[in-house]
Simulated scan of single mutants.
Amino acid sequence: MTTHASRSLVPPGRTRTVPPALHEFAYWLHRYRRTWRGTVVLNVANPLLFLTGIGAGLGTLVNQHNSAALNGLSYLAFLTPGLLAASAMQTAYIDSAHPVHQSVQAKGHYWAASATPMSPVDIYYGHLLFNIFKVTLSATAFTAVAAAFGAVDALRAPLVVVATLLVGAAFAAPSAAWAVTAKRQPTVLAVLRFGVMPMFMFSGTFFPLTQLPGWLQPVVQATPLWHGVELCRTAALGTGTVAGTAVHVGYLAVLAVAGLLLGRRTYQRHLHS
């Protein structure tokens, strides 16, 4: 009875098809089932401990001595959106670059996947979809904890999550597109140490850009994380302008699309199905 009813929903001459990329997404999701509990605990416990320490410790000292530099904001309200963007960058890079590099090595998962009807582009899209899924989980958990602490307005929390996802996409797409070409694991780690971590420290996450030397400020403003931090911060505080938001969104969107286009080429070139 159920089978007949389900078949009746399919037009004559057509069969139900699932986008091939979803099979790749399902593979990574299946692997994630083994570790999701620990990840969820970290996504909740880390922001909880961090916001407690910042709110009750360092934030109090900063508020007493440097409130003018923060334009009257509490340090907790200033820091939290920037930290969300920086965490999205880290999650996107770590969950893209290292697994992609491992998967393309001899006997890696990509070679098994490329032996199926999936194309290299399907593999890329499916893995990227899983990376965005993980960024979504992390950003949602962090924002929920921040809203409970009053660090983010609960009404603005959905906007902050959306902004964080754009940051994640802007880093995940090009990171995966590049990592599939990397020959050695130390190269992947070097980009993390000398590219990702300096952006984390000097993109306006922990202190205003005006605290940096004048010659360094334009350099920082050219980085994708600075645009992500500003987008998340203005979304959380409601201080964004139409022009400013358009610039930040446009910059990150262009980076994400460029990563998608590059990934299509690099995956097709390096995965011979």
Rank of each mutant, 00 (worst) to 15 (best):
V152L: 14
V160T: 12
L155G: 15
L260D: 06
A154R: 07
L155H: 07
R269L: 11
H23M: 08
S87L: 10
G55W: 02
V145E: 04
T116Q: 09
L212A: 13
A5Q: 01
A182K: 03
V191W: 02
P208S: 11
L29K: 03
A85Q: 03
F142E: 09
W226T: 06
S119H: 13
G72A: 01
R269N: 10
A236H: 12
V40T: 11
F142T: 14
N63L: 01
K183M: 03
L9G: 06
L262C: 13
V229D: 09
A5G: 05
D153L: 11
H227V: 05
A170D: 00
W215G: 10
Y32S: 12
W178N: 06
L84I: 11
A177P: 03
F133C: 08
P218L: 05
V242C: 13
V188I: 14
N46S: 15
P11R: 10
W28E: 06
A222S: 03
S8R: 07
S103H: 06
A236V: 13
A115R: 13
L129Q: 12
Q102W: 13
Y110G: 11
R31K: 14
L260I: 09
T210V: 11
A147Q: 08
G238S: 08
F149K: 12
W28Q: 14
R265V: 15
A92Y: 00
P218G: 03
T143E: 13
P213Y: 04
P117M: 05
P186L: 04
G55R: 09
Q102N: 11
A68P: 04
L225F: 09
L155I: 15
H23S: 14
S67V: 14
M1I: 10
G263R: 02
F171R: 01
L48A: 11
V40M: 01
P19Y: 02
I94H: 06
S8W: 07
G126R: 02
A56N: 07
F200K: 04
A86G: 09
G195D: 01
P213K: 04
R14A: 09
V152I: 15
L252G: 05
T140C: 09
V121L: 11
A163C: 02
D95F: 12
Q268M: 10
D122S: 11
A157F: 01
T223E: 00
V135N: 11
G59D: 06
F133E: 04
A88L: 13
T245F: 07
S114F: 03
R265H: 09
A86E: 07
V162H: 03
A163V: 09
V160G: 07
R233L: 05
V100M: 00
V219N: 06
M118E: 00
G250A: 01
T205H: 09
T17Q: 04
R264V: 06
S114A: 15
H270V: 15
A235C: 04
P12R: 06
P158K: 03
G57I: 06
P218Y: 01
L137H: 00
A106S: 12
K107E: 05
R264F: 07
A243W: 14
Y124D: 06
L262I: 08
W215T: 03
V219C: 06
P11K: 09
Q102D: 12
A151F: 13
A88I: 00
G168H: 04
H248K: 05
V104S: 11
V121N: 07
P218A: 03
L159K: 08
V191S: 00
G228I: 12
L83V: 10
A56K: 09
